[in-house]
Simulated assay, not measured.
Amino acid sequence: MTHPRVTYDRAADAAYVYLTAPGTLTRAARTVACDPVGIDGTVNLDFDEEGRLVGVEVLGAAATLPARLLESAERLDPRGA
């Protein structure tokens, strides 16, 4: 099993987990915002035109996701930011 692509912007404290095959360009047709009870942060679920889940955005990622996942994520900000 391959690991999903994960991007992280430390300045925004936002991570995105891509649930599509690597190299696949899939646009979200609909986003559903979730506000999990008892969790610091917000989760947005992105669905394609056929209703398939294609990605998950996590706001407040540092408090919600494992540090090792964020450390290994593709950075969208300069490492020093």
Rank of each mutant, 00 (worst) to 15 (best):
E74G: 00
I39C: 06
D40I: 06
G38S: 13
A73L: 01
D13S: 07
E57I: 03
D13R: 03
R75V: 02
D40Y: 03
Y18E: 15
E57V: 00
V58P: 00
E50I: 11
T7A: 09
D77W: 13
D48L: 14
E57M: 06
D48A: 13
A67T: 10
A81G: 01
A63Q: 04
E74D: 01
D46G: 01
L25P: 00
V58E: 01
L53Y: 05
T26K: 03
A11P: 00
E57H: 03
P78Q: 04
T7C: 04
T2H: 12
D9S: 02
G80P: 00
D35H: 14
A29K: 02
L45H: 15
T20Q: 10
L53T: 08
M1R: 01
G51V: 13
A61W: 06
H3F: 02
L69R: 00
T24R: 14
F47K: 04
T26H: 00
V32M: 10
A15Y: 06
A63M: 02
L59Y: 14
T7W: 01
S72P: 01
R52D: 11
T42N: 12
V6I: 15
F47I: 06
I39H: 05
D46Q: 10
M1K: 06
P22C: 06
D46K: 11
V56M: 10
Y16V: 08
D40A: 12
P22L: 09
F47H: 07
A15Q: 03
D35E: 15
D13G: 02
P22R: 02
E71P: 00
L65A: 01
T2L: 11
Y18A: 11
Y16T: 09
V17M: 12
E49M: 14
V56H: 03
T2W: 13
A33F: 13
P78C: 01
A62I: 06
L45I: 15
A62Q: 10
M1Q: 09
L69W: 04
T64A: 11
T42R: 15
D9N: 09
F47A: 03
G51C: 04
D40E: 11
V6M: 15
V43H: 08
L65P: 07
A62H: 08
L76W: 00
T20E: 09
R30F: 06
R5P: 03
T24P: 03
T64I: 09
L69D: 00
M1I: 07
A63E: 05
A29E: 12
L70M: 01
A61I: 06
G51D: 07
G80Q: 07
V43T: 12
E49D: 14
A21M: 02
R10L: 08
R27Y: 13
Y16S: 04
P4M: 06
R68K: 02
T42L: 15
T26V: 13
R79A: 10
V43A: 05
I39A: 05
L45K: 14
G23F: 07
Y8K: 03
P36E: 10
P4S: 04
E50S: 11
F47T: 13
